[in-house]
Write a protein that binds this DNA or RNA. Structure first.
Length: 509
RNA sequence: GCGAGUGUAGCUCAGGGGUAGAGCAUCACCUUGCCAAGGUGAGGGUCGUGGGUUCAAAUCCCAUCACUCGCUCCA
């Protein structure tokens, strides 16, 4: 196959052409980095979610589910660190096209000044030897005094500007200090802009009575604030987990690569609560467990790898990604984080209520530690879609097939009368009615049989069931396999159980 | 967000100041009947959007939106 970029483009085009994914609001020229799922897309997406949920919740008696609201009390996001940690003032250099955090540029500048002070002090210390008194020197030396005062005034001005949200003054400061871009060496700066990754909205219809709310940037916090509710009502004992799927929203500066990075996306997260000190054991357990889940979908393990985080986020003491080899390279698909007791403890502090678990085994109350698994449903969708897209040559013709794992395929079986005549459609409808309550089926009688097979291949339908003249005589049909294109003739009576063997989720759990 | 490129029918594209074309796809009918593209006919576009220049703009200019690539950010 050609280069990966070409293939990715084809996958994107294919997704639209066959009703998997449309750009949001396309009628109005589209909305950046927001996408809609079409008829086949929603089936596939639902199937992936269901597969995750069943294997995570239903097959695991120590994990229960939750569906918390997108809106949460604003303090939630103070407690989680989202409000403070993601409010960086950014500035671009127009020549190098590099982007910097304005606070970092200024801090670097101040640090340089401080280095100068240190140098002066060291030099003086060498010169005066034992008689050198640093305090005395610093308070009397004009140069050092000047540097010191400057550092202080810069810092003060910066923090004042930040607290007043005065971005123009921060730019002015950068210009006054004549800070240059480390790459281009120029002072050709854009304005300073604030990027907050959370979407803001208001609750309450009158302007003065409205409360500012955020759309949740992750589903996890809904689990944390419900920890005690769930633990008590479901009578869970540590270690146990709470799983949740749902939409999350991030105001990405640049969101691209199709559905890989969207502003509105869906997460499938599980928070596992453990005894303090046991978190790393469980972290390893879930690393392994999640990788196995991915491999259970039949994708070769060379497409996956772990990526351990070196720079840990503010809440974690161990973290890694499971990366998948997308057409545009290895990229994060799922994260496994040991979040310590950061979240529960923080909610305990901000709410003023105890968020603790009494462990009867050790007769102790404690704030549990958390190991989180967090996967993007849309990314999983893209994993399946891009990996299953295949161009094959059959009898000198191109065949486009989506080899989607059968249990995830949007359409499980297509029922096709060989011709539109001689009562074949009637018989086909009969066959259809035997299956459609349990499997998503399609009925098609238009176009030649070969063309219909190819159409089903293109949306990844595992089975095509063809009703021909013999069907009327002996109640048999042919069952065509998507991957081998081989056919076998089977009795209509066996159809349901045969199809079920291959496409039912239960056979893969 | 910055820079470059792109935007004409569902898709792939041609046209290049005088008021829109092809192939494929779609729909109807006929024909064939187990691995796509046989026949006949039909529908579908104010050429991304808004403004300007002009007697006249899809075509030239400006703005804007979206997409692609590079940079940047990413819990």
């Amino acid at each position: 196959m050609a280069n990966y970029e070409e293939i990715f483009k084809k996958v994107v085009a294919h997704a639209k052409e066959y009703g998997f994914i449309f750009q949001s609001s396309e009628l109005y020229d589209g909305l950046s980095a927001v996408y809609d799922y079409g008829p086949n897309g929603v089936e596939l997406k639902n199937n992936i979610r269901k597969y995750w949920w069943k294997s995570m919740v239903n097959m695991n008696e120590h994990i229960v589910g939750l569906d918390s609201a997108i809106f949460m009390h604003p303090t939630t996001w103070k407690a989680s660190g989202h409000v403070d940690a993601f409010n960086d003032p950014l500035i671009d250099n127009k020549d190098s096209k590099k982007r910097y955090r304005a606070d970092v540029l200024i801090e670097d500048y101040v640090t340089k000044l401080e280095n100068k002070i240190e140098k002066e002090v060291k030099k003086a210390a060498k010169r005066f030897g034992d008689s050198f008194d640093e305090k005395q020197f610093v308070s009397t030396n004009g140069r050092v005094l000047g540097y010191n005062a400057k550092c202080q005034s810069i810092r003060q001005r910066f923090s004042e500007a930040m607290s007043q949200n005065n971005l123009a003054d921060i730019k002015e400061l950068i210009e006054e200090l004549a800070i240059v871009c480390p790459v281009s060496g120029t002072k050709n700066w854009t304005d300073v802009r604030q990027f907050n990754l959370m979407f803001k909205t208001q609750m309450g219809s009158t302007a003065d009575g409205a409360t500012d709310l955020y759309l949740r940037p992750e589903t996890a916090q809904g689990v944390f604030v419900n920890f005690l509710n769930v633990q008590k009502t479901a009578r869970m004992k540590i270690p146990f987990g709470i799983a949740q799927t749902g939409k999350a929203f991030r105001n990405e500066i640049v969101a691209r690569q199709f559905i890989f990075r969207m502003r509105e996306f869906e997460q499938m997260e599980m928070q596992f609560f453990v005894r303090p000190g046991e978190e790393l054991k469980w972290y390893e357990h879930w690393k392994e467990n999640r990788m196995q889940w991915h491999l259970s979908l039949g994708i070769d393990k060379s497409y996956f790898r772990f990526h351990d985080h070196d720079n840990l986020a503010h809440y974690a003491n161990a973290a890694c990604d499971i990366e998948f080899k997308f057409p545009f390279g290895f990229k994060e698909l799922e994260g496994i984080h040991s979040r310590t007791d950061f979240d529960l403890k923080s909610h305990q502090e901000h709410s003023g209520r105890k968020v603790q678990y009494f462990d009867p085994e050790i007769n102790e109350s404690y704030v549990p530690y958390v190991v989180e698994t967090s996967i993007g449903l849309d990314r999983m969708f893209l994993t399946i879609l891009s990996h299953s897209y295949k161009e094959e040559e059959v009898n000198g013709e191109n065949r486009l097939v989506l080899s989607i794992p059968p249990q995830l395929a949007p359409v499980k079986a297509a029922v096709l009368p060989l011709t539109k005549k001689h009562g074949l459609p009637q018989k086909a409808r009969e066959v259809m009615s035997l299956l459609q309550a349990d499997f998503n089926c399609q009925y098609e009688e238009k176009d030649s049989i070969g063309k219909r097979y190819r159409r089903q291949d293109a949306i990844g339908t595992p089975y095509c069931i063809t009703v021909d003249h013999q069907s009327l005589e002996d109640n048999t049909v042919t069952l065509r396999d998507r991957d081998t294109m081989g056919q076998e003739r089977i009795s209509v009576n066996e159809l349901h159980s045969t199809v079920s063997k291959k496409v039912s989720l239960r056979n893969y759990l």
